[in-house]
C-alpha cells in the first residue's frame, strides 16, 4: 500500500532547483575544482550557456512517458551519486571545523537521518524551506560581507582570466553538468496544474550561475591566487574565513555554508527518491527515501564518491543532455495510426 507518494508542486520545485543549482556550481568551482583561481566566476557564468538547452529539454520532456525511462534512470544514478558526494562534503567540513576526532560515520548518520526525515515531509516542505532560505540567505550574506568588508581585496581578482581560457571553459562545462542533479527535482514536479504562459524553468535557473558568480567573486577577493596548500581543507578554510578576519566572523559564514549544503543535499535526495518511485511505482515513498538515503550514506562513507565525481564530471553534461534531447525528440514523434486525418 502506497502511503506516501513523493511529489512536489511547481511553486516549490523551482526555488529548490534554484538553490540546489547555485550551491552546487559554487561548491564545484570553489572547493572541488578550486585551482581555477581568478577565472572561477567567469566559468560560473559560462556554465549557463550549455545548461539552457538542457533545461529547455527538461521543460519539454513529459516525465510520465515511456520514452523518458532512460533519462529517468540516468538522472537517478547521477543524482544519487551527487547526493552522496554532497553528504561527504558536509561530513568533511564538519570534521575540518572542529569534530576532527569523531569518525566519519558518526557525523554522517545524524545528517542522513535528518535528510530522511525531511524527505518524508514530501516535496512541498523541501521546496518551501528553500524559499525560506532564499529569503534568509541574503541577510546572512550581507552580514558576512559587511563584517569582512575591509578584508576583501578586489585586486586579487586580477589577472582576469586566471589560469586562462582553456581552464575556464573546462570548468564551465564541468559546472554546467552540475545543473543536472541539482535540477532533477524539477523533473519530478507535478505539472498537471500548469497554466500556459508561465515562465519555464530555464528562465528562472539562468539566474543561478549569476548568483554563483557573485559568491565566487566574494570568495576570490579573500585570498590571492597561487596560495599555498591547495588542499580541499585549505580551500574550505579560506572560504569560511579568509585568515585575516577575526575568527568569530566565521560564524555567519558557517551557517551559510551548512544550511546551503543541507538544502542541496535534501533537494537531491528527494529528487532521487521520487525518481526511484517513478521507476518502481509499487514502492512506497518512505521506502524509496530510505533506500536512497542509505545508499547515499554508504557511498559517501566508502570514499568512492570523490573519485567517481571527478571521473564523471567532465562527461556528465554531454551524457545526460544528449539523453534528454533524445527523449524530447522521440517523445514528439507520433506513432503510426495516430496521425490526425487531413480532410
Amino acid at each position: 500500500m502506497i502511503v506516501l507518494k513523493l511529489n512536489i508542486s511547481r511553486i516549490a520545485s523551482i526555488p529548490a532547483a534554484f538553490v540546489g543549482a547555485t550551491i552546487r556550481i559554487f561548491l564545484d568551482l570553489a572547493l572541488d575544482g578550486g585551482t581555477i583561481h581568478n577565472g572561477a566566476w567567469i566559468a560560473a557564468l559560462l556554465s549557463a550557456l550549455p545548461s539552457i538547452p538542457y533545461l529547455l529539454c527538461l521543460d519539454a520532456v513529459q516525465s510520465d512517458k515511456r520514452m523518458a525511462i532512460p533519462l529517468r534512470f540516468m538522472l537517478l544514478s547521477v543524482t544519487a551519486l551527487d547526493a552522496a558526494h554532497v553528504l561527504s562534503i558536509c561530513v568533511r567540513a564538519a570534521g575540518c571545523l572542529t569534530l576532527d576526532y569523531v569518525p566519519a560515520h558518526f557525523l554522517a548518520l545524524p545528517l542522513a537521518l535528518a535528510v530522511l526525515w525531511c524527505v518524508w515531509r514530501n516535496g512541498d516542505a523541501v521546496g518551501y524551506a528553500a524559499i525560506l532560505w532564499i529569503r534568509v540567505f541574503p541577510v546572512l550574506l550581507l552580514l558576512v560581507v559587511t563584517l569582512q568588508m575591509r578584508h576583501y581585496n578586489a585586486r586579487w581578482l586580477l589577472p582576469l582570466l586566471g589560469n586562462g581560457f582553456p581552464d575556464i571553459i573546462r570548468s564551465g562545462v564541468r559546472a554546467s553538468g552540475w545543473f543536472i542533479p541539482a535540477t532533477a527535482i524539477y523533473y519530478v514536479t507535478d505539472r498537471s496544474g500548469d497554466k500556459s504562459g508561465r515562465r519555464p524553468l530555464s528562465a528562472w535557473l539562468s539566474f543561478a550561475p549569476a548568483v554563483a558568480a557573485l559568491l565566487l567573486i566574494l570568495r576570490l577577493m579573500m585570498a590571492p591566487a597561487g596560495l599555498y596548500g591547495l588542499t580541499w581543507e585549505a580551500r574550505l578554510d579560506a572560504l569560511l574565513t579568509n585568515g585575516r578576519a577575526p575568527l568569530y566572523l566565521q560564524l555567519p559564514m558557517m551557517l551559510v555554508f551548512f544550511f546551503s549544503a543541507f538544502h542541496l543535499l535534501t533537494c537531491e535526495c528527494f529528487a532521487a527518491s521520487a525518481l526511484l518511485q517513478r521507476l518502481a511505482p509499487a514502492l512506497d515513498g518512505r521506502l524509496c527515501a530510505a533506500v536512497v538515503t542509505v545508499a547515499c550514506t554508504g557511498l559517501s562513507l566508502s570514499g568512492f564518491t570523490v573519485t567517481a565525481v571527478d571521473f564523471i564530471a567532465p562527461w556528465l553534461y554531454v551524457a545526460v543532455a544528449a539523453t534528454a534531447a533524445l527523449s524530447s525528440l522521440l517523445q514528439g514523434a507520433p506513432k503510426g495510426g495516430e496521425r490526425p486525418c487531413n480532410g
Partner: peptide, 11 residues
C-alpha cells in the same frame, strides 16, 4: 555535534 548539529537541528 556543535554548530554542525545546531545547523542540522535548525534545518
Amino acid at each position: 555535534f556543535g554548530l554542525y548539529g545546531f545547523c542540522i537541528g535548525a534545518f
